[in-house]
Design a protein around this nucleic acid. Sequence first.
DNA 1: GAGTGGTCTAGACCACTGA
DNA 2: CAGTGGTCTAGACCACTCA
Lengths: 258, 258
Amino acid sequence: MSTPAKDVPRYIEIRRALAMRIMSGDWRPGHRVPSEHELMEQYGCSRMTVNKALSTLASSGLIVRKRRSGSFVASPHSQTTTIEIHDIRSEIVSGGYEYSYAVLWRRLRNATRQDMSRLAVTGGERVVAVTVVHFASELPFVLEERIISLAAVPEAESEHFVTAPPGSWLLERIPWTQAEHVISAVGAGDVAAAHLGIREGAACLVIERKTWRSGAPVTWVRLTYPGDRHQLVARFAPATQAKASPEPRKAALRGDAS
Amino acid sequence: MSTPAKDVPRYIEIRRALAMRIMSGDWRPGHRVPSEHELMEQYGCSRMTVNKALSTLASSGLIVRKRRSGSFVASPHSQTTTIEIHDIRSEIVSGGYEYSYAVLWRRLRNATRQDMSRLAVTGGERVVAVTVVHFASELPFVLEERIISLAAVPEAESEHFVTAPPGSWLLERIPWTQAEHVISAVGAGDVAAAHLGIREGAACLVIERKTWRSGAPVTWVRLTYPGDRHQLVARFAPATQAKASPEPRKAALRGDAS
DNA sequence: GAGTGGTCTAGACCACTGA
DNA sequence: CAGTGGTCTAGACCACTCA
């Protein structure tokens, strides 16, 4: 069995072989993986090649590398997994729904204490605060409450988001950022309940995101999804890429559930 | 400015320089990054070095590489971010609380239709179903509902989880796996409400995890956290590792919130 | 002190694909 | 067809750190 691999690069072949030993339980956590020199001889290839196998294995968390001691099978005491947080529009459109949005209100103000804590700034900057509902085929899909720092995005002062919602609008202007997400569950407040057409106190999935650009706060946003209309999916398959995931679901609207 | 870097490896220096151009907006999405040959000359180093800079940049999603055409600044239309899902015990202990748990019940049965759909199997296997509450200093912290495939873990047949909860017990025996997580918000059902000491319908953060080992289903688990006692935090800072994150918070218990 | 991983070099061949 | 990235080689020096 296990055809010797047709076209897969050498380093992936090695990586896969090592991953198999680990994931099969053959090598328990703490077990010492052969050194680069040993693997060179075992596989008859150069050190750079086994190094690539080992370092990608390390970056996916399957092994830990220590100078002078060697590489060891890692202890999986925390699972790290990757989630994708999508643009709301494409999320809705790719679900086969029609996208629309409505700006509920928009204000220009000096940052309140709450604004400052949300943006993680101390000085009293000017901000734009805007609240938007996004619809999937007429059905309220998510409530977006956003604060934008005018120091970071001066153009926002005169922008009323009639041609594009704040998220997309910002993405056009501030393409690459650092971000922090906080995911939680809360009961819908009266505002959210009214705008999302759900019962007050109904469970909602809330994603809060702070965004920086080279260290400077850009925007804060809270997305409130009715609990029965949205979920996040994350997959984790270390390095070996065991098999194509059956279906990379991302979000489900009510009725999509299997 | 920007001291020429003391000890940082060459490829990180290059990667950082490129990341700066991208994150500053100097190079917009779609912009063509210099080719490996051009960068070789620019930085006076070998191709392997610039290759490492570019490929790590690509794996962090900042650029897209295409043969024959070149490397291009990626469009950030979906943010991918990494969350860590921790062992419940260490999650509680690291929060400064005292950990304990109680097995509510445990049953051995042939897989029901629901069990099969949760484990993603079709045959009617034997499973262990077990429900556990985890406490943080006497306060119910999370409800764990779990199904374990006996085909994958035969020892579970006689295990009653008195010395360790199912999660830790499994981790000891099945260290490395693939997993799929689904994160959602639901109102507490009557069972969850009773055991977690919360109002029925109160918002809960729910994490469902399916676990495989080399393709074979091992376990399914649903973790129900009272919404006001838990949240997930994810950070995203592409490649440049801009700055040490102020504090890698993971979970917050009521009272920890700032 | 010796073995380990971290990094780097100056080449090489290949597959792919856009002009 | 020519330029690009993907991979690989057979060396090298270094820092670190465990024994």
